[in-house]
Design a protein around this nucleic acid. Structure first.
Length: 114
DNA sequence: TAGCTGACGAAAA
DNA sequence: TTTTTCGCCAGCT
């Protein structure tokens, strides 16, 4: 009997990613650290992959790796979609990398801290 | 059932 | 300083 719809990990990850404000991006490690899974950064990305089965909308395009590279773009409907979405939110993306990544970086710890 | 993969990150050499 | 290896934990075959 599972009381949880999905694993707590994935659910929390989805919630955090969903909390990301428009025009801001975060990293897998930041989310993982926020959830207390510092070393489980992989799970965060893996959760995104599972997000396809998740009915909730998870702005995975706002989640990039620590380098600000759109590593997961390939998992979207189209690799270009991720960049388009980011640019549409005002984030400049050059060569699959966020221009001024740290400038758009959003720390989930601050959001949960409140 | 058991093992491998996987959208990363950090530490060690 | 840069490069390489290990660790995370769960889902999928």
């Amino acid at each position: 009997m599972k009381s949880k719809p999905e694993s707590d990990f994935f659910y929390m990850v989805f919630e955090v990613v969903r909390l990301i404000p428009p025009g801001r991006v975060t990293t897998y490690g930041a989310i993982a650290k926020c959830l207390g899974m510092k070393g489980s950064s992989r799970m965060v990305g893996w959760a995104m992959n599972s997000s396809h089965s998740h009915h909730s909308k998870v702005p995975a395009h706002r989640v990039v790796n620590r380098e600000g590279l759109l590593t997961g773009k390939h998992h979207f409907a189209t690799p270009m979609m991720m960049q388009q979405l980011l640019e549409k939110e005002g984030i400049k993306v050059t060569k699959d990398k966020i221009n001024g990544f740290k400038n758009h970086f959003w720390d989930p710890n601050e959001a949960l801290k409140m």
